[in-house]
Design a binder for these strands. Structure first.
Lengths: 142, 142
DNA sequence: TATTGTTATACTCTATAACTATA
DNA sequence: TATAGTTATAGAGTATAACAATA
């Protein structure tokens, strides 16, 4: 019995997404930084300073987990931890310049890697992906 | 200075791939199994029995890392380890029926999740993604 | 009393270095 | 001697439970 059928193109698309993503995530700054740490740096780059709680919600991990990750980032000099002025229970996590650099350099490398992949395509194929991009983006955000 | 420009659709596509992949990987069997373990089970499902060395190369982790992951899978009853008949240094890792079930159930759930996502689209949008699928698949495999 | 964060503890994944067994 | 795998050890991410500090 075949595992499943449906539209075989769905499976091509699904597997392509998984594989491209896996390869893209290998592209990153030379700094000694893990996936979880990078993910936090991207949040700080995009959305500015965060509390520990907001980071743990954003990344969908428990507060103790995020606390550990933040500790590693502090030790590496990529973020600072300071107590919130308005609410003494909260802490504010800020990216340092070095931390922002790691995030930006990683973004740059991923963009460059993806651009090189796209260079394999002819104009028609590029046009097809240009048409697909907003649709996939909407699915990803929904 | 803007971070980068190039084709903004490239970035939409790139980010869509990262996000869709992240959400897809959350879909999995209810069995208590990690990402690394799942990845091994998928290799065994698709390509049959493997040695420890071939698994570690395939997943691009060191042999000691793979050894640990395999130990966990053995403890969970999802794979068996036996010595290779032709070369006493090698071990053969086979998926058990339970292990194959975990892989198949995970695949099923990911297909189902992705199919639900695609149901949001109209016929024209579906056609665009159908045209994009083989192109992305080729990029992923290149 | 409720909220925010931290500490204690435990398990998995990752690595490098050193070791065993077989070819 | 070279190869395949394992063990020892250590750092990082994940979790739950228990604790401290503040609102």
């Amino acid at each position: 019995m075949p595992d499943q059928q449906g539209n075989p193109l769905d499976d091509d698309l699904r597997l392509a997404i998984l594989r491209l993503s896996r390869r893209m995530r290998l592209q990153r700054s030379d700094a000694d930084v893990t996936d979880s740490q990078l993910s936090v740096l991207f949040v700080l780059l995009k959305e500015g300073p965060q509390t520990l709680g907001s980071l743990s919600e954003h990344e969908r991990v428990t507060p103790p987990s995020m606390n550990r990750t933040v500790n590693c980032l502090v030790d590496a000099g990529f973020v600072t931890r300071s107590s919130s002025p308005d609410d003494g229970r909260k802490v504010q996590i800020d990216a340092t310049l070095a931390g922002l650099d790691v995030a930006r350099e990683t973004k740059r490398r991923r963009q460059a890697w993806f651009a090189r992949q796209l260079e394999q395509l002819d104009a028609t194929e590029r046009a097809t992906l240009d048409a697909a991009a907003p649709i996939l983006r909407r699915l990803a955000d929904s």
